[in-house]
């Protein structure tokens, strides 16, 4: 579907390098993109308007009525900060930041190994990494509890009720699908660069830290972002590991408000979700610079 649209709309004319096109040309080359953007954003936002409306209505329902914004009252937001919400927020930011940095480093290192070295079991290892991720996690909540229980006997810091323990569990997934994304991207970095550096006497570690990582910044930012968002929304494992309300992550805390079907506090939940979306959007805004400034930054033309 997307491809046919591309076919019809993108002109093959050579674009002037300097100065934006005007008039009809502008519409053909640029203007329609704004239309696509606005339409898509409207579709993205409509369901979220319900969430925003519910967050401003202390006693209302989530989707009981299409008459939105009948009451505008910040009570839910005030109530958020009377409870543990701010410490959940902080916990989430810390846990997700550490997890995503860890994932980028470990995943990036693994991708480097797979991309640049030829060793026995490389192919098998790659395939295994991909397939392991597909294993059903149906019993994860029991298994993770058991494993943290025994680890806690030896390393209390990494056991149950520990945020560090939760980060460790999340890092268990560092070598996963994201490794492939990086692996593929690493492969596009010309090997000649490494070879040249090697001839200059650089070690593989220097090549990795100073050449490759810099060149693959876009994908590092993408993986960091994906890992951050993935961790940010994870609550199934987190609610097994963290039991004290002041240690919860946002996802766990929010889940509690919505978990009891009858007593669900949708207003509070919605307010919490609206605020929780802000760091994700801000992070993406901040990382975009890196995402779109790779090898080819600035030279890609539509």
């Amino acid at each position: 579907m997307a491809s046919t649209v591309v076919d019809r709309e993108t002109p093959s004319t050579v674009v002037e390098r300097d100065g934006a096109p005007r008039g009809r040309r502008w519409w053909i080359e640029i203007g329609w993109r704004h239309v696509v953007g606005i339409v898509t954003i409207v579709i993205c936002i409509v369901p979220l308007v319900y969430v925003l409306s519910a967050s401003l209505n202390p006693g209302g329902t989530l989707t009981g009525s299409n008459q939105l914004f009948r009451t505008i009252d910040l009570q839910n937001y005030r109530e958020l900060f009377e409870g543990n919400y701010s410490s959940w927020f902080a916990n989430s930011i810390v846990i997700c930041t550490v997890t995503s940095i860890g994932t980028v480093l470990m995943g990036g290192a693994a991708a480097y190994a797979f991309s640049r070295f030829r060793f026995q079991g490389r192919q098998g290892g790659l395939t295994a990494l991909l397939i392991v991720q597909m294993f059903p996690q149906m019993l994860a909540f029991v298994a993770i509890f058991l494993v943290l229980l025994s680890i806690g006997d030896v390393f209390p810091m990494l056991g149950l009720n520990s945020r560090l323990g939760l980060i460790a569990v999340y890092l268990g997934g560092a070598l996963g699908v994201n490794t492939f994304l990086m692996y593929g991207f690493f492969n596009t970095v010309p090997r000649e660069l490494d070879e040249a550096a090697k001839i200059d006497g650089a070690t593989h570690a220097q090549i990795f830290w100073t050449i490759i990582l810099r060149l693959v910044a876009p994908i590092l930012a993408v993986v960091g972002l994906l890992s951050f968002i993935g961790t940010f929304g994870e609550f199934i494992i987190a609610k097994v590991v963290l039991q004290r309300p002041d240690e919860f992550t946002l996802a766990v805390g929010l889940y509690f408000w919505a978990a009891d079907e009858r007593n669900a506090r949708w207003g509070l939940f919605a307010a919490g979700a609206v605020l929780a979306a802000i760091p994700v959007v801000l992070l993406f805004l901040a990382l975009q610079r890196y995402i779109v400034s790779g090898l080819t930054a600035g030279s890609v033309k539509g």
Binding site: F145, V240, R244, P245, A259, D260
Partner: peptide, 15 residues
């Protein structure tokens, strides 16, 4: 310890 009402019975059995 705060638990979701739906989790109390399930986790009780498991833990």
């Amino acid at each position: 310890v705060q638990k979701a009402s739906g989790d109390i019975g399930k986790d009780f059995v498991a833990q």
